[in-house]
Design a binder for these strands. Structure first.
Lengths: 229, 229
DNA sequence: AAAAGAATAATTGTATACAATTATTCATAT
DNA sequence: ATATGAATAATTGTATACAATTATTCTTTT
């Protein structure tokens, strides 16, 4: 008989997923203090596995330790966003190139579907779906790229910026449209198996989204400063 | 009065540094099992901080968890070395380019010193020193590059491969010589402030060292298989 | 009132005890 | 002898207790 390896989720992992979710979806805002005892009670678990979960989040940069030893939810600076996008640009380019070389006919079909969904969502001005299907497109490339080292890094970086991906009103409507076009271009080049061109196009695509991300974060920061007064 | 922030090293961090050192210098060979109780007794500490240290090492890829929950010292595969060098090549290129743009006159002077030390060591056929001063050269570039995100990733990747950097006999003598030349070239381009050329030269430099690293690891694996018989 | 210091409280760090899981040994049946 | 299963041992996972550190409050002094 085959036993599927369904390894019960540990207390630590439950805590990790829960807190990470809270940070990414905004329930826990930047600079919020994190008190181990409080969180432990909230989750009805002991501090031991909680601390392990928090340590992991600290490694990944979602929370950070202050000089006095206390933890808080990390903020992000414009400088850091720039750093992250520089790295993302290179690694996404790498993975896109590798994926182009390795993609099967079926992979192409899948990517065509995602591209179609992205374009349709952008025509309906549904920016949330543009982001959603965009992520799927990228993640699919990750999965066929065969470079786990780069993928692991990218997933972490993506977590760090995703919570700032505010879906603003007018400006982002434009970005949605061009992002959709860029995905269409990317797909066409992948289909043509032009790996070098795909790499360049992907790097450009990421760099274009940088500006939008920086604006989001500047708005986020400004908004929070307003609230403090 | 000024108090320097010298924050006593925690038990966890001591354990982390100790075990990491053992893995990197080869006292703990790949695939060695790691039993929490044993290590805790060896270090005369409790399992709580030890587990946190182990978790960090796991995160960094130096140890890995098997499906049964037990930990072991990670092995590295030729495939993974290739992955790592692909990423390193891009990130080292990025940092070298940024460093070239940001380097002060004093930075240039420091780099010149490292370059001289590398070349001298290679002339004396002192490969260990070539590696040592080479690392210093790279680390110095990291420090002036102003991209902490990329630096953090690179330091981790470097840890993963450094323990396989066997200083073999004949072949590596050649590699030392060319590596020294490459550093000299890199320095000349940095001095000329040709950031684009520096990036390309650095990417090439890393890619050249890949072949040598793969050979080291293949030898390492072959050697261990021999011992098993 | 402001500053300094002692006392107290809050929080993190570590050790130990217990629970759950996985591996090993040993007995038994085929 | 080999396979099966129960009993035991080894190991990891979690909770609790205590120690060390940092923050806060309260008193005292100027």
């Amino acid at each position: 008989m085959e036993t599927i390896n369904t390894r019960r989720l540990s207390t630590r992992d439950i805590a990790y997923e829960y807190i990470k979710g809270q940070i990414i979806n905004g329930d826990l805002v930047p600079d919020s203090p994190i008190i181990e005892d409080q969180v432990a009670k909230e989750l009805s678990i002991s501090r031991t596995p909680l601390r392990e979960a928090l340590q992991r989040l600290e490694f990944e940069g979602l929370i950070s330790r202050q000089t006095n030893g206390r933890l808080k939810v990390s903020t992000i600076s414009v400088h850091e966003v720039n750093e992250i996008f520089q790295v993302r640009s290179l690694l996404e380019g790498l993975l896109a190139r590798e994926a182009t070389l390795k993609a099967s006919e079926n992979d192409i079909k899948e990517l065509r579907t995602f591209t179609k969904l992205i374009v349709e969502a952008s025509l309906l001005d549904n920016r949330k779906d543009v982001v959603r299907y965009g992520s799927m497109f990228h993640n699919y490339l990750y999965s066929i790229s065969n470079n786990q080292t780069a993928v692991k890094i990218l997933l972490q970086l993506n977590d760090k910026i995703s919570r700032y991906r505010r879906i603003g009103p007018i400006r982002d409507s434009m970005r949605s449209k061009t992002a959709a076009e860029e995905h269409q271009d990317l797909f066409n080049l992948i289909e043509k198996r032009d790996a070098i061109a795909v790499e360049d196009a992907m790097k450009l695509h990421i760099n274009n989204s940088l500006k939008s991300a920086v604006k989001s974060i500047e708005e986020y920061i400004a908004q929070r400063e307003e609230m403090e007064e």
